[in-house]
Amino acid sequence: MAATVAMPVAVAAVALTAGLAVATFVKAFGVGFLAKPRSEAAMAAHESPSTMLAGMGVAGLACVVLALWPAGILPAVRAAVGEAAVSGEVTLRLTHVTGALSPLLLTLGLVVALVVVAGVVRLAATRRARREARLWDCGGGPMSARMEYTATSFAEPLQRVFDDVVQPELDVDVSHHEESRYLVRAVAYRRKVPDRIERRLYGPVLDMIAAWGRAGRGLAPGSVHRYLGYGFYAVCGLLILLTVTR
């Protein structure tokens, strides 16, 4: 019964997370690595030394291997949890439902399809060499880095969708010329997405602990007499308790 209730909810949660993860990946990779540099600092960036690249490379390679051949860690998983939910070498099969997935075959299929499509395009399309051209700027002249999409902007529509959950704080300041409120002098924009879990859950807990600590400070002012007093009263109390309960 618990599974009947939990399963739809779990599926929904996993599916929603997957959707958001895809959007997050595109944002992080697309804004971070693609197109022209967006700032002076990014323009002056250079490649790290090979020793640093090697570390990242090993981690990346491990990810690729794991993605293509997940069966490789199945023994280890089985050792940890007893019975694993999947089995198989190239094609992974679920243990309790009929379902199979083969990352390796899928990737191979995709690569074959890519090669076929590229070949067909080579045959069908014109043989003329690729030519470079200006980006479409609507005839308004070359575009600056300011006209590239920003990460904040990329996430804004999704943030608007989940407005009630994340509750962003935003603020647009428009300052005008004194003469007329239609002659705008400057516009400033500010936006903050506060972490609601941090604010609602961690904040109060931390505050409570801090208050507890502050209260404790009053008990320990550094006076030896008082500490001796605490000891004396504690022993007396204990003795009285023992006498009464016995």
């Binding site: 609507c138 516009v187 400033a188």
Partner: peptide, 18 residues
């Protein structure tokens, strides 16, 4: 063109050719 201050603001240039 007046630039709007603030993080994450970008500009869309449209035209003169539409």
């Amino acid at each position: 063109f007046r630039t709007v201050e603030g993080p994450g603001v970008y500009e869309i240039p449209v035209g003169p050719v539409h």
